[in-house]
Design a protein around this nucleic acid. Sequence first.
DNA 1: CTGAAAGCGCTTACAG
DNA 2: CTGAAAGCGCTTACAG
Lengths: 338, 338
Amino acid sequence: MPISPRRATLIEVAKMAGASKTSVSRFFGTERDKLSAELQQRIGESAKSLGYRPNQMARGLKGGGSRLLGMLVADIRNPFSVAVMHGVELACRDYGYALIVCNTDNDPALEQQHLATLATYQVEGLIINAVGQPGQALQALMESGVPLVLLDRDISRLNAEVIGLDNALAIDMALAHLSRQGYRSILYVSETPERASARQERLQRFGEQAEAMGLGNQTLILSHSELPSCETALAMYVEQQADSPCAVLCGNGTTLLTMAKCFKRLNLSMGPVGLMGIDELEWCELLTPGITTLAQPTDGIGRDSVACLISQLARNKPSPPYQNRHAPRLIIRGSTAP
Amino acid sequence: MPISPRRATLIEVAKMAGASKTSVSRFFGTERDKLSAELQQRIGESAKSLGYRPNQMARGLKGGGSRLLGMLVADIRNPFSVAVMHGVELACRDYGYALIVCNTDNDPALEQQHLATLATYQVEGLIINAVGQPGQALQALMESGVPLVLLDRDISRLNAEVIGLDNALAIDMALAHLSRQGYRSILYVSETPERASARQERLQRFGEQAEAMGLGNQTLILSHSELPSCETALAMYVEQQADSPCAVLCGNGTTLLTMAKCFKRLNLSMGPVGLMGIDELEWCELLTPGITTLAQPTDGIGRDSVACLISQLARNKPSPPYQNRHAPRLIIRGSTAP
DNA sequence: CTGAAAGCGCTTACAG
DNA sequence: CTGAAAGCGCTTACAG
């Protein structure tokens, strides 16, 4: 049973340095330069020898702010979400914030609960990859003035900034590429678009743009990604197009994985039947002959989410620039060479 | 410029309910049942109508504890780490803790920095997937009595609990399977084992056990996973074994990905040359003919890490059981069918 | 069962 | 440039 030596406190540092609490507080706050060189020296040394670091909980309680940001992720096991989180982390570090991450596992109830918890910790800003509709927890948070950014998914009737991929551009780039490669007819595969605005935007743009380009177009919605029925749908589609070269465009990583499995089961070879996806995953280059993708700039999306929060927090001070819609990067591989 | 209505405070609830601060505090703490039914009712109603939730920062400042756990991840983009984090999250929710996650990107300096930050937030416990050696930040934390669990990687001269895969068992299971399938000679591929005890344990057990089973055995250490040199090494190995069936066993997901790429570049077919990995990844079943793996029980590892922390926190109260070494699950696919 | 009071470790007007 | 004092929103002995 170790006698745990408590962490040193501001008072102890003040005592040791022969200074006031106020001065020590200034030393660790934003007013260090208002202290004489000599005082700074004394405080610095005392603090060091005591291993002192300000208690952030106490700081947050008074006017200091919690220096805490919250992030709500719909599915933490989705590589895209994690990649964005990586960018968020990087930016937090730069701005001196710590990050509380909550995974909602796509459960709206859990989302509400986590939101309440986050409020409890007095987070100064919130990055939300929403799964449900606003709900009272979020309303309360907004009303209490906490800055918000919506990641990838918009929420109707909530006027917060949305940061993510430029969905229209992504679809346009994909269709341009597929058309250039000679595919005349495209099947777009999406997860159920109800709750995710990004999915809706992509789906809608696909219809419009394919039409505008004179490409054949159909849509397949995966509800529970039940493999057998996907397989059937894919087989039927390909058969229908027997005469002209066709391709499958997947709206995200999950659908791409599902469709890649279907290709395999049906023994379809990629290329002759095109396959392309939004989101770059580690196995895309591994699968013969390589899958063409649109990579999202995940670090950038993450960083800009934080930058957006910081701007809202800054109010009048000069604040970092950020972008709402990010352009994808086309990675061409064998799966779109007929 | 919205006038942000501050969140309600304990005092306001007390005032509205015509009760004392103490009673309101008790209502939201562990002594609610010491309050008369009538008082409970009044406080409950007032709190509800004010939308009151206790400020966790203030609670933590007094004796309440921060109800915050910290997790340090060496590489957040590693699917294994994320999967474990998922388990940690689940358990945190059960025990009523929130989680601050810090990614060290395999940088010991960053690790130190994050550790200091975590201390600043008064985390009550720490789950560490270490990259560096202890360092003063960790020492200080330990000495101040913060419970610690080491994830997957041990740190010499730190007597904290280590939770992770049963590495010896994993290697034994892998070798037993490969031997059963008829492979007579195995190449074990590992990342540099210096800083990661799990890698060391697997590597060492591999040598011992393969020897004991009378299997040919060699080792390949990937330092920067430079593809061309791996490719050469693999080609040479396979050539040497021309006479007897041989297999490649990968120590983790990263090395498995690298080796799968080498197989592809060399046009080696999996099965005739065996391929197997520790860690189950989404593409393992996708790659023809499917890669045999040992899946780690990541949720369990995550949950037990938290359980271990809780036990240390509980001291005398009954605390949850947990396991230090977890058994993997063998998933047999075509890559180990000669 | 209930409450008045002290105090957790800080910051921030306010004075000098 | 420096400090004494009040107070952030809670919890916890201590008393009744």
